[in-house]
Computed example of a mutant assay.
Amino acid sequence: MGRTGASVTVESQHKTTVLIHGAEVTDLRCRKPLTGTVVSPPAIGDGGEEVLPVMMGFSLDAPRPVARSFDDSGNLGDPFRGQIALDKADAREFVFTFESARKSCTFRASLIVSSQGKKRSIPIPATWKDGNKPDSYVFEVTAPAGRYSKAYVTDGSSDTEWQFQEVDPHKLVADGPRLIETNGR
C-alpha cells in the first residue's frame, strides 16, 4: 500500500547504441485515498538471482513527479541523472517505483529512449510484436494501509497451505511487495 511499480528488461535491437535517459509519469489523476479493506496475498515463487538493476522512483504526491534515484537508506533522493547506454543485443533490468502517502492515483509511465537519432517515449511495461506499437498500461496506487478499516494477511505458516487472518491495518508495513503485521511501530 502506498507503493506500486514495475520491473522491466530493456534490450537493444538496433545496430547503433541506444541511450536510456530516464522515465516519466503522464496522465496522472489523483483523488482521496481509498478506504475499506486491504488483502495481502502470499508471495509467489522465489526471488531468483540477484542482479543490480537500474532503480528509479517517483513521488506522486509531488506537484510534478520526476524520476528520482534512491539514497542509501532506500528513500527517494535526487532527480535521476544517469544515462544507460545499450549496444545491440545488450539488455538491462530497470525497476520503477511509484509511491503516494496521501492520495489514490492512476497514471501511465514511459521510458525515455534515444535510438537511431530519435527520442522516443516507450510505455512501461511494453512488448513489441512484429513492429507494432505496445499497448499502454494504467498503474494504480493508493495511500498506506493505515487508512483502511480492515486488513487481512496470510499467516505464512507454510509455502503450500495458508490462511488469511484479520489484523489491525495500522500495524501493517511494507516488506518488499508484501504487507506484514508489526507490533505497532
Rank of each mutant, 00 (worst) to 15 (best):
E166I: 03
T182D: 11
S40M: 07
K133A: 14
G74N: 05
V173S: 10
P125Y: 08
A6K: 07
F139R: 03
G45L: 09
R147Q: 10
E166T: 05
F80Y: 15
D159I: 10
T127Y: 06
D71I: 10
E140F: 12
V167L: 05
Y148H: 06
W162L: 05
I44W: 12
S7Q: 15
C105H: 01
D87N: 15
G57M: 05
K119F: 08
A91S: 13
G117Y: 12
K150Y: 10
E11V: 08
R64N: 09
L34Q: 04
D71L: 11
G5W: 01
D87I: 04
F70L: 09
A126Q: 13
F107R: 00
G22F: 09
V38P: 00
R185S: 14
E49M: 10
D155I: 08
Q13D: 11
F58H: 05
D90V: 07
P53V: 11
P79M: 01
G5Q: 05
K103I: 00
D130E: 15
L111E: 02
V51D: 12
E11I: 04
Q163L: 07
P134A: 08
I84E: 10
G45A: 14
S40Y: 05
G146D: 11
R102P: 00
D155N: 15
T182A: 09
S73C: 07
D46V: 08
K32D: 12
A174C: 05
F70H: 01
K103S: 10
T160A: 10
E11G: 02
R3I: 13
A62S: 13
S59P: 01
V18L: 15
I124Q: 03
Q163E: 07
W128F: 15
K171A: 02
C105N: 02
T142I: 02
L76Y: 05
D159V: 07
R120E: 13
T35R: 14
Q163D: 09
I20P: 06
S110H: 15
G48Y: 12
F94W: 11
V10P: 02
W162S: 06
P42S: 12
E181F: 02
I44N: 09
G47E: 14
S73L: 14
K171Q: 08
V39S: 05
A91W: 05
R108C: 05
S110A: 14
V38N: 00
G184F: 03
A6H: 03
I180V: 15
V10H: 05
Q13P: 02
V25Q: 00
G77M: 09
K15A: 14
G45T: 14
S114K: 07
S40H: 06
A174V: 04
R31I: 08
G77Q: 06
T37G: 07
S69Q: 11
S110W: 05
K133H: 09
A23N: 03
T106C: 01
E24F: 01
K129Q: 12
P123G: 01
G45H: 14
T182I: 12
S158G: 07
V95T: 09
G131N: 12
G82M: 12
P169W: 13
I122R: 08
G47R: 13
F80Q: 10
A126C: 10
I112R: 14
A85C: 02
I124H: 04
D72H: 13
T142E: 01
D78N: 07
A62P: 00
K103T: 04
A109N: 04
P169S: 10
G82P: 04
D90Q: 11
